[in-house]
C-alpha cells in the first residue's frame, strides 16, 4: 500500500491542480467546462512540440519538427500558451455566448462539442501515438518512506508550491479577492470596481494556465497522448466535488484525496485482480458525495437541488 501512496500523491497533485482550475472557472462563470481536459492536454502537447529533439519526427504526419528548446523554457511557454488559449476561448466564444444570454445548459453542451472537436484535432495533427517528453530515465529514491524518481518528487513539490501561490493570490490580491467575491455572491455585478468581464477573462486565463501546468505534470509523470485530459476529466470532477464545489482549498484537498484514493485502492484486498476498475470506485464516491453531502468536505452548504 505504501508503494501505491507515492503513485497516489503524484496522480493526486495532477488532479489537484486541475481541480483548482476547474473549480475557479465554475465558481466565477458557472460554466461546467467539459473542454477542461483538452486545455490540460494542450499544455503537454505544446511543451512536447517545443522541447522534442529537432531531428525526431515524433509528430503526426511528419509535417512538424520539434524545436528542441530547453525543457524548462518549453514548459513555461506551454503554460503561457494555455493561458492565451483560454483567454481566446473567452473572448471569441464564451463572452459572445454570455452577451447573447445563452443559458448554462446550452453552454455546457457547447463545451462538450468543443472538447470533442479539439481532442480529435490533437489526434489528427499532434499526437496519434503515446509519446514521452525528452527527459532522461531516473532511478527511484526514497523520500521519507515514499519511493519516487527525483523528477517526480520535484513535480510534487512544485505542485504544492503552486497551490500555496494560488491560495495567497486569492486571499491577498485585489483581483483574487474580486474573483472570490464574484464566486461567493454568485453575482456578476461589478465588484470592488473591477469590471466583471475582466474578472471572467482573467479567470479563464488563470484557469487555463493551471490546467496546462497540470497537463505538463501529467506528461512528466506518465506520457503525452491526445486524450490525456479527457481520461482524467471525470476524476477532476470527482476531486472538485469531493472538496466542495466552489472552494479552491476544497478542490486542492479533494483532488489530492481522489488521486491517492484511486492508486491506493489498487492495493486493497477486495480490489485484487480488479485494477481496471479503480477509477470506477473514485467515480462512485463522487456520486455518493453529490447525493449525500453535496457541499463536499469543505464547502459551505449550498443549494444544489
Amino acid at each position: 500500500m505504501i508503494d501505491q501512496l507515492g503513485n497516489g500523491l503524484l496522480l493526486g497533485i495532477i488532479i489537484s491542480v486541475a481541480s483548482v482550475a476547474l473549480s475557479l472557472l465554475y465558481g466565477v462563470t458557472r460554466i461546467v467546462n467539459f473542454a477542461h481536459g483538452e486545455i490540460i492536454a494542450l499544455g503537454a502537447i505544446v511543451t512536447l512540440f517545443l522541447s522534442g529533439p529537432v531531428d525526431s519526427k515524433i509528430l503526426f504526419l511528419e509535417r512538424f519538427s520539434p524545436l528542441g528548446i530547453s525543457f524548462a523554457v518549453s514548459a513555461i511557454i506551454g503554460v503561457i500558451l494555455c493561458g492565451v488559449f483560454g483567454g481566446l476561448l473567452e473572448l471569441l466564444l464564451f463572452r459572445p455566448l454570455r452577451k447573447a444570454e445563452v443559458g448554462n445548459i446550452a453552454v455546457l453542451v457547447v463545451t462538450i462539442g468543443l472538447s470533442i472537436f479539439i481532442r480529435h484535432l490533437y489526434l489528427l495533427f499532434a499526437t496519434g501515438r503515446v509519446q514521452n517528453f525528452p527527459l532522461d530515465l531516473e532511478r527511484r529514491q526514497t523520500y521519507l518512506f515514499i519511493e519516487m524518481t527525483p523528477r517526480n518528487f520535484k513535480v510534487l513539490i512544485a505542485g504544492l508550491i503552486v497551490m500555496i501561490i494560488i491560495g495567497l493570490f486569492l486571499t491577498f490580491t485585489r483581483i483574487g479577492k474580486a474573483m472570490r467575491a464574484v464566486r461567493d455572491s454568485g453575482e456578476l455585478a461589478s465588484v470592488s470596481g473591477i469590471n466583471s468581464d475582466n474578472i471572467i477573462l482573467f479567470t479563464w486565463i488563470s484557469s487555463s494556465m493551471l490546467a496546462g501546468l497540470a497537463g505538463i505534470f501529467q506528461a512528466i509523470i506518465n506520457d503525452v497522448r491526445y486524450n490525456m485530459g479527457f481520461l482524467i476529466l471525470l476524476l477532476i470532477f470527482a476531486g472538485t466535488v469531493l472538496g466542495g464545489i466552489g472552494t479552491s482549498f476544497g478542490a486542492m484537498v479533494g483532488g489530492l484525496l481522489i488521486g491517492i484514493f484511486v492508486q491506493v485502492s489498487v492495493a486493497l484486498p477486495f480490489m485484487e485482480g480488479h485494477t481496471e476498475a479503480k477509477n470506477a470506485v473514485a467515480l462512485a464516491i463522487m456520486i455518493l458525495i453529490l447525493l449525500f453531502r453535496p457541499q463536499g468536505i469543505f464547502g459551505q452548504k449550498e443549494r444544489i437541488s
Binding site: V32, N104, I105, L108, L234, F237, A238, V241, H274, E276, A277, N279, A280, L283, A284, M286, I287, L290, L291, P294, I304, S305
Partner: peptide, 25 residues
Amino acid sequence: IRLRGDYLAIVTIAAAEIFRLLVRD
C-alpha cells in the same frame, strides 16, 4: 431526485463510465 442540471450531467456520465469499467472488469 436531488440534483439539478449540470450536476446531473456529471453524475450520469460518471455512472455510465462506472458501468463500462465494471463490464470490462
